[in-house]
Design a protein around this nucleic acid. Structure first.
Lengths: 217, 217
DNA sequence: TTGGAATCTGGCCGCATGACCAGAATATGG
DNA sequence: CCATATTCTGGTCATGCGGCCAGATTCCAA
């Protein structure tokens, strides 16, 4: 029997509890990335992790909670990484460049995350209009980028562009390239694309009286 | 019993055969878009279509073949639509703008396609390195855009940009925005994003000695 | 050391699915 | 109108899944 540690949230989870959950989530991400979500059963995850199937049921309420935990990891880890990189910069142009770079750098080290994320997209809940990805990935990103652009505009560092739309487009170009790369790493030159995106954004948001926009370097 | 009409491919499929397959694929796409792939069983599709479950098994070899057919439709229909729009233009800049516009216009009329496509991404076959999306969606798009850029460069209509990378980025920005919009149509201003992408590309690939790049109009 | 709590095992169960089939219904050509 | 090929129905069946549990094992405080 399992002690009812969840509902009240009284005592912090035990060492084993935390380690196991981490291990299971890790293994699940790798398995989904390797075999595809449709081929990833709880039994398969257990096999990959070298543990009994029941352990998963013991540490997670069910498959749904496991997926939730995986999604949390998949969305929050890169977000934290990127935020730290951006906040290290001061100028708007540097922040934007850092945002793009950080996205690509994280992805390079975590292709598994991308593949798992793509597979999990298909699990959106159709009943609720606003799904997990929208509310925890896209909207926060757009808000974050919008803020940077608006502040930069007020400071006169960037031109007056429609912030929300521009935020969508920036995030889109990054995600789109990473998606292509996830499907076939050999087909996409990640560094070249990253550089191209950085230049394109820099040129597009550059103040119109700034000659750097038209004449490179 | 079903006559062995597939293997040889001798006689053309009957009228009923063709109509049923179209109907089933249509219904399946709508059902996947509405309920999500995980909730879309053959029984569910049959129910939505108002036919018996066995009809699907009769007209399709199995669920796999049905999915293949759906993917074909999902990938080829927009491609054909876009190609026609682009080929109506002559200048490189017009072709690029038409490419972007056509993508958005098609998507606006077929959000179902987008949602179904996203759900089907999770069904990639992990055994084969190059999956369906890579070989039938991304790579052809990149090739197509690269060609346009290279021709435009030779003609002196656009600057010398790394064509392959730029092609990835253009396709990426479009797909990325459409993805955000598919998840939540209210959160993304499609027209504004489309316009922003068009401008950004036009500015980025504009010949460097062309003053239009820096000064609008 | 010892007893109870926490953790793990391996198997069982009900359920939903895709595949399949025998026979009914319908279309088609002579 | 008839005979045959085609198409459809509704049900059965085997499979694999997630959830669950009884008992074995390990941990840890007293």
């Amino acid at each position: 029997m399992r002690p009812d540690s969840k509902p009240g949230g009284k005592g912090r989870p035990s060492f084993i509890e935390e380690a196991r959950r981490r291990q299971i989530v890790d293994t699940a991400i790798k398995t989904i990335a390797a075999l595809g979500y449709s081929a990833t059963s709880l039994a398969e995850i257990a096999r990959e992790a070298g543990i009994s199937k029941g352990v998963i049921s013991y540490h997670f309420e069910g498959k749904d909670e496991l997926i939730e935990e995986i999604l949390s990891r998949l969305l929050r880890e890169p977000a934290a990484f990127i935020k730290k990189r951006v906040e290290a910069k001061t100028s708007t142009q540097d922040k934007l460049a850092a945002y793009v770079d950080a996205n690509f750098e994280f992805a390079k080290g975590h292709r598994d995350y991308l593949l798992a994320l793509v597979d999990l997209w298909g699990r959106r809940n159709p009943t609720q209009a606003h799904n997990r990805f929208e509310s925890e990935a896209y909207e926060p990103s757009r808000r974050y980028l919008s803020r940077i652009l608006e502040n930069g505009c007020r400071a006169g560092e960037v031109a007056a562009v429609p912030a929300k739309a521009m935020a969508s487009v920036i995030q889109a170009s990054i995600d789109g390239v990473l998606l292509q790369w996830a499907f076939d790493p050999n087909a996409v030159d990640l560094d070249a694309c990253c550089s191209e995106i950085r230049q394109m954004i820099a040129g597009h948001v550059a103040p119109k009286n700034d000659s750097r926009a038209a004449f490179g370097t």
